[in-house]
């Protein structure tokens, strides 16, 4: 029997959060963590968590599993379980709505702040804007972000300043548009980021890289933005 310990908190009935212990019979199968949670929800229907695609592309089910952020639907038990024990907590650093559901508002606010859409002040052609395969390659490793928040909620700088530090996910998105040959708002984008907090709170500890379920590298993107900011300043 797998020992599962889950963070529980319902603001309507609980004065404080607590850990609830469950036992799950996995019949020796190497299930995904999400499968285990579904089994638990059948035992206790009040358990709350988000999920949608169950294949690692929608970003709903970011969670802290045995101390590490990840997506429950693509994390096999064999990757996280230690000593037959699985501890599930909500993503750290954001307010808890209920159980494993966090309030993502601050995270989304930082995303919206970087103007996450193409800005191009030239008239659109009758067909598509052309882009060379080499220029398009520059977007690989950036556009694939699924907004799961695993990275930003693993980042101590984001924990400290979630209102002022854009965070790894938002900065990855910021660089996705800076790097796009079709975007003409580079100067404007950089000036919006040019302060001591938005970018420069990143200390390069790379927790974001360690947890990204899509294998993306926000630290590298942040480094590129720093270079652009510094080049701009001189």
């Amino acid at each position: 029997m797998l020992q599962v310990s889950i963070y529980r908190y319902n603001p309507e009935t609980d004065s404080a959060p607590y850990m609830q212990e469950f036992q799950v019979d996995t019949q020796g199968r190497d299930l995904m963590v999400l499968n285990v949670m579904e089994m638990l929800k059948e035992q206790d229907s009040s358990l709350a968590y988000r999920r949608s695609c169950r294949e690692g592309v929608c970003g709903s089910d970011g969670m802290n599993m045995n101390g590490k952020n990840g997506l429950t639907c693509v994390t096999a038990l064999s990757e996280v379980v230690k000593d037959n024990k699985l501890v599930l907590r909500p993503l750290p650093g954001l307010p808890v709505v209920r159980d494993l559901v966090v309030d993502m508002s601050l995270f989304y606010k930082q995303y919206e702040r970087i103007q996450p859409y193409l800005l191009n002040d030239t008239p659109a052609p009758a067909i598509e804007r052309l882009q060379s395969p080499e220029d398009r390659d520059k977007l690989d490793g950036l556009y694939e972000c699924i907004l799961c928040a695993c990275c930003s909620t693993a980042c101590p700088s984001f924990w400290w300043n979630p209102d002022k530090f854009v965070g790894p996910s938002g900065l990855l998105q910021a660089y996705r548009f800076l790097a796009d040959s079709r975007d003409t708002a580079t100067e404007e984008r950089l000036s919006e980021l040019d302060d001591p907090f938005s970018v420069f709170r990143c200390r390069g500890i790379m927790n974001c890289v360690a947890v990204c379920p899509k294998g993306l590298n926000p630290t590298r993107a942040i480094g590129k933005i720093r270079e652009l900011l510094l080049a701009n300043a001189t």
Partner: peptide, 20 residues
């Protein structure tokens, strides 16, 4: 409708001539 998506920024893969 597809060209509009491209103008909005959809990162389509490209042929060597730069088209979608």
């Amino acid at each position: 409708a597809v060209f509009e998506l491209e103008h909005m920024g959809l990162p389509f893969s490209r042929f060597d001539n730069g088209r979608i």
